[in-house]
Write a protein that binds this DNA or RNA. Structure first.
Length: 468
RNA sequence: GGCCCGUUCGUCUAGUGGUUAGGACAUCUGGUUUUCAUCCAGGCAACAGGAGUUCGAUUCUCCUACGGGCUACCA
């Protein structure tokens, strides 16, 4: 197959969510697979809604995910700018060319007028279309408007009675009749390009040859193809990925619990978990092994992209998070926790603590919680814990205290002794000890906990329990 | 309204003109772990509906329903 230079071209009008990120990931993996460049282009032609802070946030999210772009903002590439707002002057020569060829024309119908026309068309049961009144306007008519100081938009002349065909790498062969398309705007009144124009032209100028994007753009594709052909510009291959929706089937949004990438990062989700999850939704990976981006790229195929939409499932993300945390080395885990828990006590031996709880947590918050219960919270903080302690009884803890205080080589032996002296066994022996020592009913093996916190703290806790 | 895309267990998905329709997540039941997690064993659970083609359709065709997109001086 061809070069497969891909791109991600977000518009900075909001934070990235999992849907956007998946598209970016797919594009990135496709480029990686073919050792081709991956390009980032910021489509900020909507001055009203585009915000620099969003561009920044998007770059941060991509960096966090390790989706590093070879060409784009703050990195290599031959373009002067990868912000479309800074490329506006470049588009002018294409407008001139199209104007010379009479393939675009100025249109002075105002937005208000268009709105009314559309409304009437819909009311009359007609398709809402641009009626094309300006497509055949004379020089004089145009000059008259210009003299009045009116600024036109420019519309692309869609040729009638044509079929535009292309092969979509995901959806298969596509054919659209140009009669269903109307003359779309390529240049707004303020002289800036529309998405339809800048997006297609830039892909060609930047030599992107595989456009992998959401299938909401599928029916825009024939328009863009017509435009590129009119300009004699190269056509990319297209791969339209189906929608990623919330559990309710509606597009991802805050309403159906869609989190921004920023949210996920702050919760402690690991980029590897997110990548492993996303590459398996709407795309098949033959096994369930946790993979690096490199390994994901190796098995990524456009043929394996599903043509039907998929829903976000937190449980599945969580599964990959679990797997990823499990795979962390102590040092990696330490780095991860310290990033999220700025207030980890400094007198604590972080490595030992991490060894202790690594297999029992999915998020930094849980580590913090565990630590609190171990050292700072009173035993009465949880009624469940309190109940178990009260059921075991004061006598039990006095016995336990005595045994522990007299010294022991290993914890298992000590519990046996406590069992012998108190007459308790099984869960009745074990659980009250666990609960008194750790402040909760679950957690790592108790002998390790005892090693970690030390005999003095164990005695403190047992005493506390005996006094409840 | 027009054009387009889609519909396999709750979820992510595999798959084929003849299969006991497979796997994973979730869930449930056992076992291991004197807790939890892990691990192991097992259970529940799906081809949207209707016509047609065919000896046979989940698979091919058409229709319907449902979901989604485009039809913006948003992208």
């Amino acid at each position: 197959m061809k070069a497969n230079k891909t791109r991600f071209s977000p518009s900075p009008t909001g934070l990235l969510h999992l849907g956007n990120l998946r598209t970016a990931l797919f594009s990135f993996l496709m480029a990686q697979k073919h050792k081709s460049p991956f390009l980032l282009r910021i489509e900020d032609t909507d001055f009203e809604r585009s915000k620099e802070e969003f561009s920044k946030a998007i770059c941060e999210d991509l960096n966090w995910m390790q989706l590093n772009w070879d060409e784009g903002p703050h990195s290599g590439g031959k373009e002067d700018s990868y912000y479309q707002s800074e490329r506006v002057h470049l588009y002018e020569e294409f407008y001139s060319e199209l104007l010379d060829k009479n393939l675009i024309y100025p249109c002075f119908t105002s937005e208000e007028e268009l709105k009314i026309i559309r409304r009437n068309q819909i009311a009359a049961g007609e398709p809402p279309r641009y009626t094309g009144v300006w497509s055949e306007a004379s020089e004089n008519e145009i000059q008259e408007e210009l003299d009045k100081g009116n600024q036109p938009v420019y519309r692309f002349r869609i040729p009638k009675d044509h079929n535009i065909k292309f092969v979509d790498l995901v959806k298969g062969e596509q054919s659209f009749s140009t009669n269903d398309l109307d003359d779309f705007i390529v240049r707004k009144k303020d002289a800036t390009p529309t998405f339809m124009f800048a997006n297609a032209v830039d892909d060609s100028l930047m030599e992107v040859d595989l456009v992998l994007r959401g299938d909401d753009h599928l029916s825009n594709t024939p328009r863009q193809i017509a435009l590129l052909k009119a300009l004699n510009l190269s056509l990319p291959q297209y791969a339209h990925v189906s929608l990623f929706t919330g559990l309710d089937g509606a597009p991802l949004s805050k309403r159906n619990g869609s989190l921004s990438i920023n949210d996920l990062r702050e919760m402690g989700y690991l980029p590897k978990a997110v990548a492993n999850y996303l590459s398996r939704v709407g795309h098949t990976i033959p096994d369930n092994d946790l993979k690096t981006l490199e390994d994901l790229a190796l098995v990524f195929e456009t043929q394996n992209i599903s043509s039907s939409p998929s829903k976000f499932d937190m449980d599945q993300l969580l599964f990959w998070q679990k797997k990823t945390v499990e795979s962390l080395t102590v040092n990696e885990c330490k780095e991860w926790l310290e990033k999220h828990l700025r207030d980890l006590p400094s007198d604590l031996n972080h490595e030992d603590f991490i060894e202790l709880i690594k297999d029992n947590i999915n998020f930094p918050e849980e580590a913090k919680n565990y630590l609190n219960k171990l050292f700072y919270q009173p035993l009465t903080a949880q009624t469940e814990v309190e109940n178990i302690i009260k059921t075991a009884g004061k006598e039990f803890y006095l016995v336990a205290y005595k045994v522990i205080d007299s010294g022991f080589d290993n914890w298992i032996e000590a519990t046996k002794l406590i069992g012998g002296e108190s007459g308790k066994k099984g869960k009745d022996l074990f659980m009250p000890l666990r609960v008194a020592i750790t402040g909760q009913t679950k957690g790592p093996e108790l002998d390790k906990v005892v090693d970690f916190i030390g005999v003095n703290r164990v005695l403190e806790r047992v005493k506390e329990a005996s006094e409840l």
